[in-house]
Amino acid sequence: MIIGENIHKSFGDLEVLKGVDLHVKPQEVVVLVGVSGSGKSTLLRCFNFLEMINEGKITIDGHTVNPKKDNLTKIRAEVGMVFQHFNLFPHKTVLENVIEAPITVKKMKKEQAKKLGMELLKKVGLEDKAGVYPSKLSGGQKQRVAIARSLAMQPKVMLFDEPTSALDPELVGEVLQVMKQLAEEGMTMVVVTHEMKFAKEVADRIIMIDEGRIIESADPKTFFENPKNERTKQFIQLVE
């Protein structure tokens, strides 16, 4: 579904991704872990073309993206992204947040978009908040709206960058619950998270990134019980 080959990304002199190969299959849930600064966010942002890679190839749903020729807005629309800090549009209500892109990008009729928006809000358990501004929501509610907003574009794959890291502990569960449900419905997902319980339960594969390289890629059981790399072992000790 989403294939990265030999991805290199530098910021000035700092090489953050040093040749990453990652092949995410349709309906697969991949959890990305790694210490701070290892390049997890950068990798996700490259998959969504918020950052441009310096070298390598990205293929989404069978199409190898050529950033110079392709219409990147179209490709971004197919790749949903959920951010650590939600980034809801504060000047728009919850429903308006969700229907903004379908209306402006897909030129969907307002009535139809609203119907879709309400369905998605229902899915994340927030249909009663449709008319409310984001400032009135808890962090967990905001993130669930952000997920609904992303889903409204019917993306082929969803990227999550530490979706629960900015939340109070008691609000983490409701967001993970929504993500788990998405995974069960067959959504292809790449998730950066420190929630190891979620990784164990939901991930098909856990990938460890270290200093811009993938150093471990295994199913959760193998990853935790039988890691190959020394750094992975250290990381697991740290988080367990």
Partner: peptide, 20 residues
């Protein structure tokens, strides 16, 4: 983050500026 969220939804630069 506002700009990034908008771009990630598939809105182009102009829509992102004028609507978000």
């Amino acid at each position: 983050g506002q700009r990034e969220a908008s771009l990630s939804l598939g809105m182009d630069r102009r829509q992102t500026m004028s609507r978000i």
